[in-house]
């Protein structure tokens, strides 16, 4: 799917809205129950993709969001900008552009100072069963399946460090449950992926070049309708011989400033990246939704 196709699909959906009579409506989700924006642009926590659908819409409308995210690490910066639409609280389509700046480390790695890896991520997520928020008399979580197609821009470098592909597709199943009686939100996601550092360093490698299941888990506690504190962990494959990857973890605070705006701040530990040790820093994300 090209970027223009996504824009066209977006325009079509929004244009179709007024034609579909008075029962269609904007908004209606409870605050923060559409999650925040995960690093790949899907609705979720900061690191993990959740089963919730982007946007404020209910089953009776369309919604969407835009986001900007900065991950500031000791030796690298990751910036991402994205947009997503949610249809009937059922289907989510997302696009995100990531830009990973190697700053001074780029020179040390022989790439040149400020060498930047970029990646486009096209995502689709379908809610299959369950309602994370409303089905409080059932243990069944909200379950969604999704794909994320990723296109990295540095194919030559990726191959030079042992990566096999500059494009890859992740497949995942996510389960999210709000345990209202305990004020908790829980998520577990299993992702089949070949991605090296989320795909920025390509897909597959000289150690492994096959899909392997990885786990993403999140747990949060709701302190008010506008404020959630939580922590996440996400395993990643380690496909490249030249550099090991570790499990990424974060501790986050998500705050709904208004009905349409949320801020997420996190302390994130991404482990070692491309032989540069201990990349721990700040994750900041702002999301606007309708």
């Amino acid at each position: 799917m090209s970027r223009s196709a996504l824009v066209a699909a977006l325009a079509l959906l929004f244009a179709a809205q007024p034609a579909s009579a008075g029962d269609r409506r904007w908004g209606g989700k409870l605050l923060l129950t559409n999650g925040v924006t995960s690093v790949e642009g899907a609705a979720g926590g900061g690191l993990a993709t959740w089963a919730v659908i982007a946007g404020n819409e209910t089953r009776d409308g369309v919604g969407g969001k835009v986001n900007a995210t900065l991950v500031a690490l000791p030796d690298f910066d990751l910036e991402s900008f994205g947009a997503a639409i949610g249809v009937n609280d059922r289907l989510e389509l997302s696009y995100t552009h990531q830009s990973f700046d190697t700053r001074a480390a780029g020179a040390a790695l022989g790439l040149g100072r400020g060498f930047t890896f970029q990646q486009d991520i096209y995502g689709a997520k379908l809610r299959v069963i369950g309602d994370a928020v409303w089905d409080q008399d059932s243990w069944l979580p909200q379950i969604a399946v999704g794909v994320q197609h990723k296109r990295a821009n540095r194919g030559a470098i990726i191959r030079a460090v042992g990566g096999r592909h500059d494009r890859g597709t992740d497949f995942y199943v996510a389960a999210t449950k709000v345990l209202l009686s305990r004020s908790l939100v829980l998520n577990a996601t299993v992702r089949a992926t070949k991605a090296n550092q989320f795909g920025l360093l390509g897909f597959g490698g000289d150690r492994h070049d096959h899909y392997r299941p990885q786990f993403e888990g999140s747990a949060g506690i709701m302190l008010s309708p506008r404020f959630v504190l939580g922590a996440e962990a996400r395993t990643k494959p380690s496909n490249l011989n030249f550099a090991c990857e570790q499990t990424a973890v974060d501790a986050f605070a998500a705050w709904a400033l208004a009905r349409n705006v949320s801020l997420t701040a996190a302390y994130v530990d991404l482990g070692d990246i491309a032989t540069v040790r201990r990349q721990r820093g700040a994750f900041l994300s702002i999301q606007g939704s309708l």
Binding site: V133, W134, Q136, S138, L180, S181, R182, S183, M222, L223
Partner: peptide, 16 residues
């Protein structure tokens, strides 16, 4: 208290 609010809302939510 917020936690008590949520325990009550958990009883009401399935009425949807």
């Amino acid at each position: 208290v917020f936690a008590a609010q949520n325990r009550f809302l958990a009883k009401l939510a399935p009425m949807h």
